[in-house]
Amino acid sequence: MDVGSSGMRVCSSLGCLGLNPLGGLGKVVGGRSSFSSGKGRSHQGPVKYGFTLVKGKANHPMEDYHVAKFVLLQGHELGLFAIYDGHLGDSVPAYLQKHLFSNILKDEEFWTDPNQSISKAYEKTDQAILSHSPDLGRGGSTAVTAILIDGQKLWVANIGDSRAVLSKNGQAIQMSIDHEPNIERGSIENRGGFVSNMPGDVARVNGQLAVARAFGDKNLKSHLRSDPDVRNADIDSDTELLILASDGLWKVMSNQEAVDIAKKTKDPLRAAKQLAVEALNRDSKDDISCIVVRFKG
């Protein structure tokens, strides 16, 4: 996420990516290494996933975290995928990695009204973060989450500018909404805040934050929203893959360009790596996190 910082380049090429072994299923990532990747698959169907996280040029520690795993719950197999892009520290995305999905899935209405359960859990988790702010600090995080139910139904939610893109018959379909300050200027101003548009810079809430919705950010919270946009899709024979990524990818690549790169290989880990490499080649300066979920072989 863009908070206006810059610094040394840590990983900048395929060579950097090649120096590291593959991580395992559901590997915990963030704050300590410049690179991590891994892969996994459904135990009940053809769905496979791969993920890659690469530290950006900024001189702070890695602030992106992820979730990518399959779990069994009440007789159903759930694919849980998320990108959490932190700012002003990694404590909030680390908290989300540990708690957000559990808050969604333990809601008693999840199986009958996933939309409502996801929305409630996002708000509940944000309130918990704010109540723990002395421990978690003043930072915040975006989130994009995807829950795949029995390989057939997909629920995507997001706040901020981490994005989910679905490919159907090779065509990119954006499943999330980028919450940019200029787009939500009315809401921000109604809450007593303002949006700055300095020459050569992106729009920022109160001159600070480049997204209009986020978890945490206690000092700005009165001017920010933390309710997610939630969408769903049926996974049919025309649905090829899902890409979740932080804005380190989307700042330099269109939805269709990402889909065109990812669909060239049936290996989702290789696809995620190729997306990260291309973002680096296009001089992306932010942390780059990418999950590719492939729905068929």
Rank of each mutant, 00 (worst) to 15 (best):
D2M: 02
G4F: 04
M8C: 01
S12V: 08
C16G: 11
G18Q: 12
G18T: 07
L22T: 11
K27Q: 13
K27E: 14
K27L: 12
V28I: 12
G30C: 12
S37H: 07
P46K: 15
Y49F: 15
G50M: 04
K57M: 04
F70I: 00
G75V: 12
H76E: 14
F81T: 08
A82I: 09
Y84F: 15
L88Q: 15
S91R: 12
A94I: 05
F101Y: 04
N103C: 03
F110L: 06
W111V: 01
W111G: 00
P114Y: 04
Q116S: 12
S117N: 05
A121M: 05
T125G: 13
I129M: 08
G137L: 07
L148H: 13
G151W: 04
Q152P: 02
Q152G: 10
D161E: 15
G170S: 00
Q171I: 13
I177F: 05
I183M: 02
R185T: 02
E189P: 05
P199A: 09
L209C: 13
V211S: 03
F215E: 05
K221A: 03
A233R: 01
D236K: 11
S246E: 07
V259C: 04
V259T: 05
T265R: 05
P268A: 01
A276E: 08
I288V: 13
F295V: 05
F295G: 03
K296S: 09
